[in-house]
Write a protein that binds this DNA or RNA. Structure first.
Lengths: 210, 210
DNA sequence: AACAAAAATTTCCTATTGGAAACTTTTGTA
DNA sequence: TACAAAAGTTTCCAATAGGAAATTTTTGTT
């Protein structure tokens, strides 16, 4: 047998193609290592993991030793059977740290206030600069759509989560929709958007922009 | 040729095994449909998608028509080449997405569940693909730091907001810090991080990764 | 250390994937 | 409608994945 995993060879070919052609270089991706760590962390033997996932002992062994590239079907069984966190599977090994280790904690109510006629923003994590996302907690003062002179539009995407109360979510291209505690929305900010409280007390939301 | 995809048959076997044995029933999972939606939404032909991903036209066609279960290696090429959001691939089909002014509402409790030994994730806004951010609502099941075999590390930045309960926020380069309802944190994910509930009931948080 | 039991790996084999090219369907244009 | 070009599907085959069982390695006990 070749002592080099086939799909790694494949990857290498892929990289050169990408060089010549267009995008996407595909890195090695140490799926096997990951899987082994996860299995051991749950104190499972291959036999037990086999029962949980429905994959043969031998297959699991080969996956862990990076001797095969499992099918999507097999990966799914792994994910479901072992309760694997998906982002970890696909992200890089990430050598032990030394990389960006920033952290910023914001205690309730201690964010930076930023009031407007219609919203009462509390900006979070303001200590950190150059963030990919901008999070804030907002109280929606507006009580009718007319309070907005014009659509709010800006770059990027926005995630919205309703903490308290209820509100109407107006968007340029859709019917307004009422959101309640625990509901969330994700949308393109180039599309006009605005919020109007409908509950007795002003609604409160978490907003994250990227 | 059989008119039934092989791996679907396989899945069915898996389900019965799971019934008899222990956990994890694996659903059909319409990967193909997803991929097609994503490709078309970017106005790509199979030929173009082939160039971007490095997979043969024919292979792409078969994947989209659910005639084969691609290997992990192939899935990776898809992900990198077409800019697919990983979690989308593992979550249920749902409806198709529009382009331009996108919007996706997720009602309380209707997100896509993704349980792990330590966290109970509910993925939000799973109908939209190619998002800059990935939002989750998570219940923290872990009760001690020892339940994590190793630091969780991955690419990007993360915003965390505590909805309910209290928890200890462990990070690789800082002292653990206790967070309460309404507190939030923003940090680099390359730095090891994990959460442990300290309140009577499991703590609940909103998590947004970018 | 020697042995037995458990766990992991490897072998051997069949079934499935993935690529090249042939073929079919769809689209658009006169 | 007829035709050509583009897009998509299917076929065929070599390469690879996945399962059962044999083999090797590790672990634990005396």
């Amino acid at each position: 047998m070749s002592d080099e995993p086939h799909f790694l060879r494949e990857e290498r070919v892929e990289i050169s193609r990408a060089d010549a052609n267009s995008e996407a270089a595909v890195e090695p991706l140490q799926l096997g290592k990951r899987v082994r760590e996860i299995r051991l962390s749950q104190n499972l033997t291959l036999e037990e993991a086999s029962k949980r996932t429905g994959l043969a002992r031998s297959t699991l062994s080969k996956i862990e030793n990076e001797q095969i590239s499992p099918t999507f079907s097999a990966v799914n069984k792994l994910v479901k059977g072992l309760g694997i966190d998906i982002p970890q599977l696909f992200s890089q090994p990430k050598r032990s740290a030394a990389a960006g280790g920033r952290r910023d904690i914001t205690r309730t109510g201690t964010g930076t206030p930023h009031p407007t006629p219609t919203y009462e923003h509390e900006m979070l994590a303001t200590q950190l600069t150059s963030k990919k996302m901008i999070p804030y907690r907002t109280t929606v003062r507006a009580r009718s759509f007319e309070e907005y002179p014009e659509w709010v539009r800006h770059d990027g995407e926005e995630f919205l989560y309703v903490l308290k109360g209820s509100l109407l979510f107006y968007t340029e291209f859709y019917e307004p929709i009422e959101l309640f505690e625990g509901d969330s929305a994700y949308y393109d900010c180039e599309m006009g958007h605005s919020l109007v409280s409908t509950s007795e007390a002003d609604a409160e939301v978490i907003w994250v922009t990227a």
